[in-house]
Design a protein around this nucleic acid. Structure first.
Lengths: 147, 147
DNA sequence: TATATATAAGACTAAAATAGTCATACTTAG
DNA sequence: CTAAGTATGACTATTTTAGTCTTATATATA
C-alpha cells in the first residue's frame, strides 16, 4: 500500500511543471507536460486552488500559477491538501480519538513515529524538488558534452 | 487515510497481550483480552505465525506465544508482516519501480522521507510498548494509593 | 478410542476508498 | 458573439479493506 495516493503524485508532478514554467499555464498544457489526463488534471488543480497552493484566472487566456514561492510549499502541505493528512493509525486521527487512548500503551510509540513522519514531510519543499530537477538536467547536459 | 490498517492495529494489540502473558495463550483468550473478534483474531495470528513472529501449538491445550523476545519485534516487522511494507509512493515499490525514476526529481525527496519512516518504524519495538504499559499500570496504582 | 478443545486454511461477502470520466455551467479576451 | 479557458459536481468501475464462516486437522484427556 502507498502512503501517497496516485492523485497526490499527480499533484506533485503538476506543481513541478508549474514551478518550472514560472508563469501562468493552462490546465491543458499542464496535463500534457505532466502526463496526467486532462479531466483529472482539472480536478486536481481545483483541489490545489481550494487549498491556496495555486491561483487561477478564468476565461480565455486563463490558467494556473503557483500561489506562493516553491520554498513555502512543503510535501506535507500538498499531501494534506490533496488526500488529507497522513495519520499513522486511527487513534491519532484528530477527530474521534480512541476511547482507550489514555490507557493504551501503543499510542505513545505511534505518536512519536507520527511526529517524525510529519517533520520529514514538512522538511521537503517544492523548491528542493525543482532544484533536484535542474541539477538533473544540468548533469544530463554535461554528460552529453562529455560524449 | 491511515498508514496502519485496522488488522495491523489488532495484531499489535494481540502481541501486547501475548507479551504481557509471557506464556502460551489460546486465540479465544487473546481475542477477549484484546477486544478483537475471535475469527479475525485467528486469522491475524495465522499471518503472524507465517511471518515467524509467534509460534503455535495445535490441539487441545494449544495456543500461541511469542517466537522471539519483545525487544526483537519491531513495529516495522509487524507492519510488514501483516499489511506488507509501507511505501511512500508507487515509485518506491520494490517491484515495478517507476520507469521514469532516473529522470524524476520527486523520487529523491521521496526516498529520503521513506528512509526516515523506515528508521522510525524500526526503532520502536514490542518491548518499548510493554514497558510503557507496565509504567502506565504502575502509575495507575500509585494514583490509587494516593487517593 | 471417543470427544472436546484447539489450530489451519481459505472461500466468501459487504462496505468503503480510490481512480478516473464526463456533462454542464460559468468567465473572459479578442 | 464565440472560442478558449476554468468551476463544479454527478457518476461509474475497480480495488482494497474488514470481517465472517466453513471445513479440515491435531492433540490432550476421560
Amino acid at each position: 500500500m502507498n502512503v501517497i495516493r496516485q492523485h497526490t503524485d499527480y499533484a506533485l508532478r503538476l506543481l513541478v511543471e508549474l514551478g518550472l514554467a514560472g508563469e501562468k499555464v493552462s490546465a491543458k498544457r499542464l496535463s500534457r507536460s505532466a502526463k496526467v489526463s486532462y479531466y483529472y488534471t482539472a480536478k486536481i488543480l481545483q483541489t490545489l486552488r481550494g487549498a491556496g497552493i495555486v491561483t487561477s484566472t478564468m476565461g480565455k487566456c486563463g490558467g494556473f500559477s503557483l500561489a506562493r514561492p516553491p520554498r513555502e510549499v512543503s510535501l506535507a502541505t500538498v499531501v494534506g491538501a490533496v488526500q488529507g493528512p497522513v495519520r499513522l493509525n486511527q487513534c491519532l486521527m484528530p477527530v474521534r480519538p480512541c476511547q482507550l487512548r489514555d490507557r493504551c500503551p501503543i499510542t505513545g510509540a505511534m505518536a512519536r513515529v507520527q511526529k517524525q513522519l510529519d517533520d520529514s514531510l514538512e522538511a521537503v519543499t517544492l523548491a528542493d524538488i525543482l532544484e533536484a530537477q535542474q541539477a538533473g538536467v544540468k548533469r544530463k547536459h554535461q554528460n552529453r558534452r562529455g560524449t
